[in-house]
């Protein structure tokens, strides 16, 4: 993909004040997104992927503090924008959709009104023009009879339709970057594929950068240009989708892939791979690798100091003290993954 990055993040951290001290929800995260490109943030609950996206939108909870060396969006530093300028950006150049559209829509306003509001607020002008655009976009996201739908309320739509409508609403002002937090998790598999295809098509059409936050490695493998695997607030593996899935290197990434039942795998052939133990507490100072307590390859060196990102390939880095060959162990994690 070409073009200057629409978003460049360097050294983003989010700390949350809790009674027991400081909770390091996100630690030193760096990535960039180019127009028309998809970055997938993947990890399990509590890994910091949602906090990262909220930090980008500057929608963090009040107890949270954001620090970043750089958070440049279309040449402006998101970390230093005033609240007023930030509000102008949200829903305009910077869009976000959530897992459950029902909670992010106002249940007592008609769909048309909510969509028009986005346009009127950022671009002003006549309501009729806003309505026309809303109708055009509903049709573009594959909603039949858009005119009738505009007069309906969110509860009258199915989950899949609501998510389409949410996407249409975010496209009202043609954002440069769309952040989608688990957009298909609440949907059926058949609908999931449709929504992902739609996102991908629209992204090409509008040359939008897309940050897709998900726990589903299947979604990541099929959607990502770039991948960042997060664990305990840090990126533990990062690179192009192709390289990361062809040669998953961090033991956590490999463990996650082993947890997914493969085609042809039945219980009769032995148990699924699993990652023993639980995520460590993120409160207080940490040293060493945060995955060491759950890692089969952990040894003495894993306790000491900060583990730096190391190169595993041309566009592929991982955060482990072992060299790539040893970190990967013997067999490839996913047999079908050879590039």
């Amino acid at each position: 993909m070409s073009g200057a990055p629409v978003l460049e993040v360097e050294g983003l951290s989010v700390d949350i004040d809790v009674p027991a001290g400081k909770l390091h929800a996100v630690s030193d995260v760096s990535f960039c997104v180019r127009p028309g490109e998809t970055l997938c943030l993947v990890g399990e609950s509590g890994c910091g992927k949602t906090m990262t996206s909220l930090a980008l939108m500057r929608l963090l909870p009040p107890r949270a503090t954001l620090t970043a060396r750089r958070m440049s969006f279309e040449g402006r530093d998101l970390a230093r924008l005033s609240e007023r300028d930030m509000a102008r950006l949200r829903g305009d150049r910077l869009g976000m959709i959530f897992q459950d559209p029902m909670t992010s829509l106002n249940p007592v306003y008609r769909i048309g009104d909510q969509m028009e509001e986005v346009w009127l607020r950022h671009r002003g002008g006549a309501r009729a023009a806003a309505r026309k655009r809303a109708e055009f976009l509903l049709e573009r996201v594959g909603i039949i009879n858009p005119r009738q739908r505009l007069d309906q309320y969110p509860h009258q739509l199915s989950g899949g339709l609501r998510q389409r409508m949410m996407i249409a609403m975010m496209l009202m002002c043609e954002p440069a970057l769309l952040i989608a937090d688990e957009p298909t998790t609440a949907l059926d598999v058949t609908v999931q594929v449709q929504i992902l295809s739609l996102l991908r098509d629209l992204q090409q059409e509008f040359r939008m950068g897309l940050i897709l936050i998900t726990h589903n490695l299947g979604v990541v493998a099929r959607m990502a240009d770039e991948v960042a695997v997060m664990y305990a607030g840090r990126i533990v593996e990062q690179g192009t989708g192709r390289e990361v899935f062809a040669a998953p290197t961090h033991p956590y990434t490999r463990g996650l892939l082993d947890c997914i039942p493969k085609h042809g795998q039945s219980a009769a052939r032995g148990p699924l791979g699993s990652i023993p133990g639980i995520v460590p507490s993120l409160v207080g100072e940490m040293s060493g690798c945060s995955f060491r307590n759950r890692c089969a390859l952990a040894h003495e060196a894993c306790r000491r100091g900060e583990v730096a990102l190391a190169q595993a390939g041309a566009d592929h880095a991982y955060r482990c003290v072992l060299p790539p060959g040893q970190a990967r162990g013997q067999a490839p994690a996913f047999a079908g993954g050879a590039a």
Binding site: G142, V189, G337
Partner: peptide
């Protein structure tokens, strides 16, 4: 419609009309 974690396959286009 199953998305297996295999890279380079892209999204499937299951042959299903829209709308339940």
């Amino acid at each position: 419609s199953i998305l297996t974690p295999e890279p380079g396959l892209g999204l499937p286009r299951p042959d299903l009309g829209r709308g339940f």
